[in-house]
């Protein structure tokens, strides 16, 4: 076997052996790394689940115009003409009170609607606007509210837009947190490797005296770092799975109360692989920094 390849294999086996020989300290380091990873990844999961929930909602500004129950046919016609001619309105759709009730039934709220003596829902128009600026939305809302026969006008999409904006902040936070915890991970890994180096200081010095290059000395520590990061990532994935399991019940219960089929989506396989890869890389980097610094210091 090629000597270089043999040393890679031996370094990997050596790192694994050392890790298994000190299961407690290796386990605690993995746990510390795991918690550091859990925070940004957990937040990513929360944001992406919320995003999925909000994904079914219209983000284009929409206005619902509810007709008064006592509006006369002439008033209704005037409103329709006004809406069809309005330059700011892109699309308009009439939703009769019957249609609205059917939709509620279809959403699983038939228990509630069955108890009603008469249909309490008004006839309505759902309007999509050409402009999405909040001022334009507000101007139109005021203009339409003033029409005779109009009960009320709701700008439906505002909260959806706000949710999107909040999710945007959430995504940014995930990025920033990932960066921060990436740094923390490098620091944790680097410190754990420093302890390893101190234990093996003699071995490093002897190896150097008989002609070991820095690269040769670094190799087992880098494997140790990579393994440490990978075990930390596995710990994080385990923690997230447990959290998901604990939250699954309450979330489904809440969703059922709202008549939604929403269920928590776990981390996808590629995302899990990315977490594993990033943790391995960062921990490797921490090891590299620790060993390189130590080699400089030993002279």
């Amino acid at each position: 076997m090629n000597g270089w390849l043999a040393h890679h294999l031996a370094s990997f086996a050596d790192a694994l052996r050392r890790m298994l020989r000190t299961p407690f300290s290796a386990g605690f380091t993995a746990l510390a790394i795991g918690v550091a990873i859990t925070l940004p990844v957990g937040m990513y999961l929360a944001v992406s689940n919320l995003g999925q929930l909000a994904g079914g909602l219209p983000t284009q500004p929409e206005i619902s115009l509810f007709l008064a129950g006592k509006a006369s046919p002439a008033e209704r016609e005037a409103i329709q003409r006004k809406l069809e001619a309005h330059p700011d309105i892109e699309q308009r759709r009439f939703v009769s009170s019957e249609a609205a009730l059917e939709r509620l039934n279809a959403q699983g709220l038939s228990d509630i609607t069955a108890g009603l003596e008469r249909n309490p829902l008004p006839d309505a128009w759902v309007l999509t606007l050409k402009q999405s600026a909040p001022q334009a939305l507000d101007t139109l809302r005021k203009e339409l509210s003033a029409l005779p026969g109009v009960e009320s006008v709701h700008a439906d999409s505002i909260w959806a837009e706000r949710l999107q904006a909040i999710l945007g902040i959430g995504r940014m936070l995930v990025l920033l947190l990932s960066g921060l915890f990436g740094l923390a991970l490098i620091a944790i890994a680097s410190n754990a490797i420093r302890a390893q180096i101190l234990v093996r200081r003699e071995e490093i010095e002897v190896s150097r005296l008989i002609g070991a290059t820095d690269r040769y000395i670094r190799r087992p520590f880098l494997y140790y770092g990579a393994l440490q990061g990978a075990s930390g990532a596995l710990a994080a994935l385990g923690i997230l799975a447990l959290l998901g399991l604990a939250l699954q019940g309450p979330v489904s219960q809440l969703a059922t109360l709202y008549g939604s089929p929403f269920r928590l989506t776990p981390l996808s396989l590629p995302a899990g692989a990315a977490v594993l890869g990033a943790a391995t890389l960062f921990s490797w980097l921490g090891a590299w920094i620790a060993v390189t610094r130590a080699l400089r210091k030993f002279g």
Partner: peptide
Amino acid sequence: LLPLSIAGFDRREA
């Protein structure tokens, strides 16, 4: 074996 491993010797030869 250490010096031979450091010098990258083939394991069997080492």
